[in-house]
Amino acid sequence: MKEIQVKVSNRNGMHLRLAGELVKNTSRFSSDIRIIRNGEEINAKSILSVAGLGAGYGQELKIRAEGEDEEEALKLLKKLFDTGFSEG
């Protein structure tokens, strides 16, 4: 089990399109992936859960992955959050 800390770097926050991008990527991995905010934990492969976070710009989130490909998964997710999902 591994965890990383990320920050929403998109000006418009985690809107639906972005949530879609995120679950598209998390769904590629077999690991169980969770997003944790203020102790609340949601499934990172469910678009409604991710969108339901209503995570605005600058929001800090914890991502936890557990499974065979947890390392690759977190590496990719870190990159996505750092680059603002290449949305700018």
Partner: peptide
């Protein structure tokens, strides 16, 4: 449906701010 959900998310984030 997708657009109205997206609008709701945006509104919610704004009101939080």
């Amino acid at each position: 449906a997708a657009k109205s959900l997206d609008d709701k998310i945006s509104d919610w984030m704004k009101s939080k701010k």
